[in-house]
């Protein structure tokens, strides 16, 4: 046999065996872990009318069950940890196609728009893959949707989780979790920074638009346009982070200015709930945030979901809700409890 034919045969045999071995792990990991989310959404297919799309901030801050009770909608929180725009688009497309979605909330935050940094928003990750039910779906996703640079990482993580699934299922189906319809409820924080340490963090993080990634903004625009193409009401919302985070941040008005202009251009509603006037009264750091000051606790999510539902319903009824918000972070900071506490200038 000619050398080139031998090489083709050997390479083909190798690739086939590689795919079969990989498939064995991936097939076994199909029914477990985050896959219960797929089952839930399958059960609810055709019944949902309200979606929440975003990353971990949105995942922790909005309680679908509460939202349904307050607004009469049938909502699902599609948000997940570090979910990039690619994944958001994939899941959104799936749900928009099989449901009559009237409203989509797209969660936005200044840190999601920036370059890698601490949030590590890769464009593809395993969480979405794990939320698919069949090997065929996963392969199609990996082959057709994941960028070349990320394929090895997504493959590795799929296989790694699959390997551990062989031993025992990682996250069993939980009725309590299922009732939440997506989202994640965190416990409250059990410690806070001592005064001196907190005072020293004032304005230590300078926010800058220069760190926005064009790719991320474009991806977000694609999400908006996808929703609009399906005739859904689009609400771009910043869920509130803790007072501690805002105390540390500086120059966030540049973000607000950009977001207002961007959302006006995209013809979508925009609410920065960091600037909600009631926030200091409703959401205290000690009660409403987890040990990680970016993410709300279960209690905080219940309180915030109520305020959120109230605002969006009022807006839907044609009321002007702008008076419920501060005009800027510069204005808001004077009412921050930390301002009084540390008597900063």
């Amino acid at each position: 046999m000619r050398d080139s034919k031998k090489a083709l045969l050997a390479t083909g045999a190798f690739v086939l065996l590689f795919a079969l071995l990989s498939g064995a792990f991936l097939m076994f990991s199909t029914p477990f872990t985050h896959n219960y989310d797929w089952h839930l959404r399958e059960q609810l297919a055709g019944k949902l009318d309200f979606l929440i799309v975003g990353a971990s901030h949105g995942q922790c801050a909005l309680n679908s069950r509460e939202l349904d009770a307050l607004t009469g909608c049938n909502s699902y929180n599609l948000c997940y940890d570090a979910e990039g725009n690619y994944e958001k688009q994939y899941l959104l497309r799936e749900e928009l196609t099989r449901n009559q979605i009237k409203t989509v909330v797209l969660e936005l935050s200044y840190d999601t728009m920036q370059a890698a940094g601490t949030t590590g928003f890769t464009d593809s990750n395993v969480f979405t893959v794990m939320r698919m039910n069949s090997l065929a779906d996963r392969m199609a996703y990996w082959l057709g949707h994941v960028k070349l640079d990320n394929k090895l990482y997504v493959y590795a993580e799929m296989m790694y989780l699959g390997f551990f699934e062989w031993r025992h299922p990682q996250i069993p189906f939980d009725a309590e979790q299922a009732a939440l319809k997506g989202g994640k409820m965190l416990p409250g924080q059990d410690q806070s920074l001592p005064d001196e340490a907190l005072a020293a963090t004032h304005h230590e993080n300078w926010f800058t638009l220069a760190s926005f990634r064009e790719e991320t903004v474009n991806g977000f625009t694609d999400l908006i346009q996808l929703c609009q193409a399906h005739g859904a009401r689009v609400i771009v919302a910043v869920v509130p982070v803790s007072d501690q985070c805002l105390w540390r941040a500086e120059n966030l008005d540049a973000f607000t200015e950009w977001a207002n202009a961007y959302c006006a251009e995209q013809n979508v509603e925009f609410y920065d709930f960091n600037l909600l006037r009631e926030r200091f009264a409703l959401l205290s750091d000690e009660d409403c945030y987890s040990t990680d000051p970016m993410h709300m606790s279960e209690k905080g999510a219940r309180i915030f979901t109520e305020a959120f539902a109230r605002i969006i319903q009022a807006a839907a009824d044609g009321q002007d809700v702008s008076s419920s918000f501060y005009q800027s972070y510069s204005e808001m900071q004077w009412d921050s409890p930390y301002m009084a506490r540390f008597q900063a200038e």
Binding site: A10, A13, F14, L17, F18, L21, S22, F25, L152, Y153, Y155, A156, E157, M159, Y160, F163
Partner: peptide
């Protein structure tokens, strides 16, 4: 040949899966 291909494929899966995960 068959033994070689099986060993190499297993090795490649090990490297791609666990090596890839180690890198991450």
């Amino acid at each position: 040949f068959a033994v070689r291909i099986i060993l190499l494929s297993c090795g490649a899966v090990l490297v791609a899966a666990f090596g890839g995960m180690a890198m991450y």
